[in-house]
Amino acid sequence: MLNLIKKNKLPFISFLILSFFPIFIDSYYLSNISYFMCWTFISLGLALIWGIGGVLSFGQTVFFGLAGYSFAVISINFLGVVGVGIWSVFLALLITSLFGLIVGYFLFYGGIYDVFIGIVTLAITLVLETFLQQTAGPEYTIGTARLNGFNGMQGMPTIGFQELKYGRLEGFTQYYFILTLAILALILLYKFKNSKLGLIFLATKEDRNRVASLGYNVQKVQLIAFVISSLLAGISGILYTNWGGYITPSSMGLVSAALPVVWVAASGKKDFFSVFIGTIFLVWLSQMLAINGAQFAIIAMGLILVISTRFFPDGIILMFKNKLIEKVKWLQS
């Protein structure tokens, strides 16, 4: 553990700061930062498959949405049953990773590569979006939960122990829960990256055939990574649904699908920590610009993206991180 901290002083310090944040900020900023952190998991999942394995999925939002909808449908159906706010989450994640398994199997065992993976995953997320948009009618009811079409679902319980005072994911509990989960995800992702499986996955990016000829099961490794990434996207989806008490088909649309790709690429897809910080930073930035910039907000956001890829091809956050570590001797391990 100490060794881990020694090697990663910057992440450690960042998380230390994040964990003391709630003392200094009011409930609004607390829930707002929780909201920013909700989005980090889908980015981390994409960084895993894209940054390490070179698999660019343009449709991670399908897992985001599927998890959100599954959670909503299950929890609404069993409203009032003991512990529904806990086990419905696990069930939703199970459904999501099963779907990830099916999609991943289709992709990797079907011999689909490169940009085609992007198009297929995009098509899948658009299919689900298009289908759900038109489910406003009463015939689209699962148990007691209406899918409610384009306008989206609401009325799900808050995640957690409904009976306990601080047992639900809101306010402080929500903040610390998401933070802990993010730390855990980062540690596990680093472990995966440095494991044998992770190294094989990294090698598949460079040359699939050579890795296969060395006797490794390329497809299996890719599939495992893909399922993990779908699970992470699902976590984002559930946390987002819980945060706003609401999930809609547009969270699986073209614009939503492009966002994680943009976040990951602009932050630095090869480094999980940069992706974590970068996602928070970019979501915050676009919100700030919307508040202060009025109609120039979107233009400013676009300029930042263009400039950062033009001049910082490895990602702007990763570049800053490396600069910082270079300048501050103490941060070096």
Partner: peptide
């Protein structure tokens, strides 16, 4: 090019 062209499209 995904990110840059997305940025261009926003602008």
């Amino acid at each position: 090019s995904v990110v840059a062209t997305w940025g261009i499209s926003l602008i």
